[in-house]
Amino acid sequence: MGNRMNGEREGMPSGILALIILIGSYILMRFVISPPLPSALTNFFMLFVIVGVLIHITLEDGRIEEFLDFISFRSRLHPIYNVIRWTVFIMIPFFVTYQVYSAVKISYAPPGELFQPHVTPPEWVVGFKVPEWASDPATWGRGLIAEGKIYYENHCAPCHGKEADGRGPEARVLIYPIPPTNFKDPGAIAQLPLSYVYWRVKEGGVRDRQFMSSMPAWEEEMDDEEIWKTIMYMYTKAGVKPRTW
């Protein structure tokens, strides 16, 4: 099957293809995509790429042999492929050195943060009954929504934006670990039941360490009725509906 030591192979050796896929995927994730994927996540996805490459190589007996010949320098290759093979071989210690260097290098950057989009609500939210007049989006009256608009534009729009797209004037400085929510995002308030959103507005994010957000608590500024009207406007403006089941 494999032609060891003799005869040049036709086409690209699987070892070269594997290198292209591995190095290419890494470069794609860390340097092409913007912002780059976090390093831990890159490693996580690299695991998939490595498994994919290993599966590809071990699918056929012949290919395994060819690959082993490649990495053990037994096969004779086209000069270009040979140069690549040698370059990668020589680069391995440098790569390891760089990894060690970056691991021990003192960094002044703030530590990485995990933003948790939907955190666990406190116990009072569990089983909280939404007042009947606010519970069904189909019955939200125009008057209530119009009133909500005033509260929204006074309190929420500076960060979440007049268009409910998370692009208020303040949003430019609030970017880490999480900027103001874009309510139009199908993964944001459209995913949440009303009771959850009510809790977020009422108690904000600053009080809850899970969020790590600078969202203030509005319960001292607004009463319950006003909060509900604001929520109604928020959903209407964003053009999404709360989760209903």
């Binding site: 913007s34 912002p35 780059p36 994927l37 976090p38 831990a40 950057a109 703030p110 530590p111 990485g112 943060e113 995990l114 933003f115 989009p117 998370g166 970017i175 880490y176 670990p177 999480i178 900027p179 929510t181 874009n182 995002d185 993964g187």
Partner: peptide, 11 residues
């Protein structure tokens, strides 16, 4: 878990 540069603008 991301750094300031990796996070960009939120999600």
């Amino acid at each position: 878990v991301s750094s300031l540069e990796e996070m960009g603008r939120g999600l």
